[in-house]
Design a protein around this nucleic acid. Sequence first.
DNA 1: GCCAACGTTGGC
DNA 2: GCCAACGTTGGC
Length: 150
Amino acid sequence: MNYWLMKSEPSAFSIDDLVRAKREPWSGVRNFQARNFIKEMRKGDQALFYHSSADRIGVAGAMSIGSDPYPDPTQFDPKSQYYDPKSRKEKPIWYLVDVCFEKKFNELIPLQEIKARKELAGMLVAQKGSRLSIQSVSKKHFEFIVDLPE
DNA sequence: GCCAACGTTGGC
DNA sequence: GCCAACGTTGGC
């Protein structure tokens, strides 16, 4: 079992959207490093839902990975903002997983708190210039965040 | 294969 | 809106 952190701008897709949808294909990852993490994901892994570029930045909840990785259909759709003309159906470039809602925190855990907590020292998301939209998280850090008293 | 220019991310 | 960080592109 592996643990992840997945970023989304809540104006595009938020934890509340996932509450309603229950399950959602996490489409649109177009960065090779992030794509490589997606390919390592397996059904049953756990992930933190992170809100970036918003009024309130931080971890908004938790989800589970609901599928193994499969080709992101938006890469083949010329009408999609995620369309990639270089990709071929026989050899897709971009992958995604389905995510399933698990938990919404009563209070979002702010990035500032993640930076301040010594128990969370070393988390990539708290490092300056950490733009990677899919990150690996240690079991220890994942459980600490999910169990933070609210 | 180098690296400058350019574009995007994302915190502030 | 600014700007640092950094990934990507393309000329050479």
